[in-house]
Write a protein that binds this DNA or RNA. Structure first.
Length: 212
DNA sequence: AAGCGATGCAACCGCGGTCTC
DNA sequence: AGAGACCGCGGTTGCATCGCT
């Protein structure tokens, strides 16, 4: 099972009347997991009562779907997932549950949080819209850099912001053992020794030959 | 070391749609 | 058919943690 965030003893959870609210305790998690493993999911309100949990059905459902479900993947969102989320969001907007259907190991809540805290902030810093080609290119470049890192190993990569100029520019990031960046119009590239990886909007990463 | 603002994320809330009786 | 219960979604809040001064 996943390592779960647990509230410490005497946590921020409060009890109003017969119901508890706030952070879940390890004991509550165990009760819920144990009950669902024996009886499966059902009607959440009655499940909460039958499992001996002083929680609303809603609260139990949220806890199960977002954290206790065995197939939920937690932690760092990969560049591939970022691009997929970006693509799906450009199609459907804030339809988080619909987007999450295409990343079944991620929850809608996680995707929504990721979007609001990281993506929107990132776009603000770049001064562009999250659905713009420019923003997409930056993500593609990041993935590109990661691949170069993986294959070349040990290189220090500097992310170069997209320039507005239409003319071709070759940006040299410094030492001869580091990759150089080529930027032309709406295309990014990382030049890695004899191989050039180019990132095209809506297409992805392509390996090019003889393009220095 | 302490204070404080920024950040990330778990959890709650409100509402509209669906189900059940 | 309709009323109440329930579910699921998207938006929002609150708190723990981090990093800076």
């Amino acid at each position: 099972m996943n390592v779960l965030p647990m509230s410490p003893a005497g946590s921020s959870a409060v009890t109003t009347g017969d119901l508890r609210r706030g952070a879940w305790t390890a004991e509550e998690d165990l009760l819920l997991v144990d009950y669902i493993s024996r009886h499966g999911e059902g009607r959440w309100n009655s499940l909460a009562r039958c499992a001996g949990l002083r929680r609303t059905g809603k609260s139990c459902r949220l806890r199960w779907l977002n954290y206790l479900r065995p197939d939920v993947r937690r932690g760092h969102i990969t560049p591939e997932e970022q691009l997929l989320i970006l693509d799906l969001h450009s199609r459907w907007g804030n339809r988080w549950s619909k987007i999450a259907q295409h990343l079944p190991w991620r929850t809608d809540n996680e995707i929504k949080n990721y979007w609001r805290t990281r993506v929107q902030k990132h776009a603000r810093q770049l001064g562009c819209d999250v659905n713009s080609d420019r923003f997409r290119q930056v993500l593609l470049l990041r993935r590109c850099c990661q691949r170069v890192r993986r294959t070349a190993g040990g290189w220090r990569i500097t992310v170069v912001p997209l320039l507005q100029s239409r003319e071709q520019r070759v940006l040299d990031s410094g030492g001869r053992h580091e990759p150089r960046y080529l930027e032309h119009a709406s295309v990014f590239a990382v030049i890695d020794g004899g191989v050039t990886w180019r990132a095209f909007p809506r297409v992805g990463l392509c390996r090019c030959h003889g393009q220095h």
